[in-house]
Computed example of a mutant assay.
Amino acid sequence: MEQCLLFDCDGTLVDSEKLCNLGIVIKFDELGIKLDAEQLMMKYRGWELAAVFEQLSAEFGVTLPSDFVAEYRSVVAGLFDSELQPIAGIKAALDLLPGPKAVVSNGPADKIKQALALCGLTHYFGSNIYSAYDIGIWKPDPAIYTFAAKDMGFDSKDCIVIEDGLVGVEAGYKAGMQTLFYNRFNQTCAFPSVITFNTMDELPELINSQ
């Protein structure tokens, strides 16, 4: 049976999470609030942006300007243009995985497309891009993955999810899909059937053994 591979984007395909959080640091600095990009990354990896901003604004007692998100997106787009790189080993891994593939992300579609284009990954996925902003479902809700699977023409049992954060891992696991956790930061995963790996060099063999 052919399997469909469903990839997260930020931190799984492209090394973008530090840049996204640097954008938060830059924008909150304008409000007089000092944040640390590394700490933000570890705390909020995979979260819906609105939830991150809601929590930070409550923590520091600030009301974000109406154009804050748009300006943040612009800052991140600039950082992507100058600094974004693919995750180490991902191109070689994708070259060895010729089957159907899609990107399933909590990020907006234009950000996903920009990231894939800058990193030379667009041709691996074509138009198979599923954004939480378009679907109206955010990880860790598993419905984002079941939606993508159905739209790709696959049952959940025939899909493999590749994620780098616990929010996405939870979504894949609860969607009833074999989930592979690219665990760059050696986090503890509570879901028993999730397979953890540390480098993209391992990915093709892991997938082909499923």
Rank of each mutant, 00 (worst) to 15 (best):
C4R: 01
D8L: 10
L13Q: 09
V14T: 15
K18F: 13
L22H: 14
D29K: 14
L31D: 00
L40K: 01
L40S: 00
L40R: 01
K43A: 08
Y44K: 10
G46W: 02
W47Y: 15
F53Q: 00
E54I: 04
S57G: 05
F60P: 05
F60W: 15
G61A: 07
L64G: 06
S66T: 15
S66D: 15
R73W: 00
R73Q: 07
A77E: 03
G78N: 12
L84Q: 08
Q85A: 11
P86A: 01
G89Q: 11
K91R: 15
K91I: 15
K91F: 02
D95F: 03
P100W: 01
V103R: 12
S105L: 09
N106E: 05
N106R: 07
G107W: 02
G107N: 14
L116K: 07
C119T: 13
G120V: 00
G120A: 04
L121M: 09
T122V: 14
H123K: 15
G126F: 06
G126V: 06
G126I: 06
N128H: 14
A132K: 01
D134K: 10
W138F: 15
K139W: 01
I144A: 05
I144Q: 03
I144K: 03
F147M: 06
A148H: 08
D151K: 07
F154R: 08
K157P: 00
D158C: 12
I160S: 01
V161C: 07
V161P: 04
V161N: 04
I162M: 10
L166W: 08
G172H: 05
Y173M: 01
A175K: 07
G176T: 05
Q178W: 00
F181L: 08
F181C: 04
F185V: 15
F185N: 13
T188C: 08
C189A: 05
C189W: 00
A190S: 13
I195L: 13
T196Y: 02
N198Q: 11
N198S: 14
M200H: 09
E202D: 12
L203T: 10
L203Q: 11
N208F: 13
